[in-house]
Design a protein around this nucleic acid. Structure first.
Length: 155
DNA sequence: GCCAACGTTGGC
DNA sequence: GCCAACGTTGGC
């Protein structure tokens, strides 16, 4: 079953444009250190799931591109690297704690801001807008996804 | 840079 | 297993 996701990235770390400019337009989504977000990758994400690529912690936050899940989840290598800020001393290669997944950029769109999402009944209940939400990966319903790509998104 | 909200840690 | 203290997220 195809599912849909909104994935946050700080453009200073990994912008949509930077992913598009890669030879295969694909980035490994490393550095997730939140159990709920990890569980989404581990339990629910599948190849070809739809992804709304979101820029966070920046001057103009919002959805800036469409992408897809391009791999199965695999251990995040940085958890084993003592020199990395993502190093986790409690994780071992035999029993990795954290996962990464490949995300392939498909199509840039004109930015859809949080204000845009809040103003439409079709998107006002999105998980990413929920009070206190801090998850960097949130599920998107099929209805929300279709409304966004067919009615809000401008190429 | 502020701060609300939530997650994690660790002593007990 | 409780919960206070601390750390992080992320819009504004």
């Amino acid at each position: 079953m195809t599912r849909y996701w909104l994935m946050k990235s700080e453009p200073g770390e990994c912008s949509f444009e930077s992913v598009l400019s890669r030879p295969d337009r694909t980035v490994d989504w490393f550095g997730i250190r939140n159990y709920q977000a990890r569980n989404f990758m581990r339990d629910d994400m599948q190849i070809d799931d739809g992804v709304l690529f979101y820029h966070s912690s920046c001057k103009e936050p919002g959805i800036v591109g469409l992408a897809r899940i391009a791999s199965a989840p695999y251990p995040d290598r940085l958890q084993f690297d003592p020199s990395s800020e993502y190093f986790d001393p409690k994780s071992t290669p035999e029993k990795p704690r954290w996962l990464a997944i490949d995300v392939q950029a498909l199509q840039p769109i004109e930015r859809i801001s949080l204000a845009d999402l809040k103003v439409h009944p079709q998107t006002e209940n999105m998980r990413v807008l929920a009070r206190g939400n801090r998850l960097s990966i949130t599920p998107v319903t099929e209805e929300e996804f279709n409304f966004i790509i067919h009615s809000l998104a401008r190429l």
